[in-house]
C-alpha cells in the first residue's frame, strides 16, 4: 500500500540478500572499474612526485641532485613503471566512457560516441608527441 510514501506491505518477511565483501570480483566489469578507481592512486602519486621535484628544484642544486638520484634508483624505476602502466590503464578505460558525459550536436544529429572518444585519444597523442619533442630534442 502507498500514498505519498511507498513502503513494503506490513507483515512481509522479506529476504535481504547479503552483499558479499568480494562483490567486485563477481563481475568482470565491476573488477575492471574497481581497478580503475584504484589506479587513480597512482595518478595522484605522480602528481605528488612532481610537486616534490619542484620543491627540490627550489631548494637548490644539491637537494635536487639527491632527488634525481633517488628517482634513478632501481626501486623507484620499478615504481615508475608500475605507476605508468596503472595510469595508462586508467586513461585507456576512461576515454571510452567520456562520450556519455558529453552531448554534442551537429544539426539534428548527435555526434557519435566513438568520434568524441577518438578525439580524446587523438588529443592525448598530440600532447604526448609535443612533450616527447620538448624532452628529446636536446
Amino acid at each position: 500500500m502507498s500514498g505519498g510514501a511507498h513502503e513494503p506491505a506490513a507483515g512481509l518477511k522479506l529476504y535481504h540478500p547479503p552483499m558479499s565483501l568480494w562483490w567486485w570480483l563477481e563481475r568482470r566489469a565491476y573488477f575492471k572499474i574497481v581497478v580503475r578507481e584504484l589506479t587513480s592512486l597512482f595518478v595522484g602519486a605522480f602528481a605528488v612526485v612532481t610537486l616534490l621535484q619542484i620543491r627540490a628544484v627550489g631548494d637548490g642544486p644539491e637537494p635536487y641532485a639527491a632527488f634525481a638520484a633517488m628517482l634513478g634508483s632501481p626501486a623507484f624505476i620499478t615504481f615508475s613503471v608500475v605507476a605508468f602502466l596503472a595510469v595508462l590503464f586508467h586513461a585507456l578505460t576512461w576515454f571510452p566512457l567520456v562520450p556519455t558525459t558529453i552531448v554534442l550536436r551537429v544539426g539534428e544529429q548527435r555526434v557519435p560516441g566513438n568520434i568524441i572518444a577518438g578525439a580524446h585519444f587523438a588529443g592525448w597523442l598530440i600532447v604526448s608527441v609535443v612533450v616527447a619533442y620538448i624532452l628529446l630534442r636536446g
Binding site: H6, E7, L12, Y15, P17, M19
Partner: peptide, 22 residues
Amino acid sequence: LQFFPVVRDLVIDMSSFLEKLS
C-alpha cells in the same frame, strides 16, 4: 533481481524504487 529485498521466489519488493521515482 539482485540488490532488492525478496518477497517470494522471483518477486522482489519494489517499494523503495517507487519512492525514489516519486
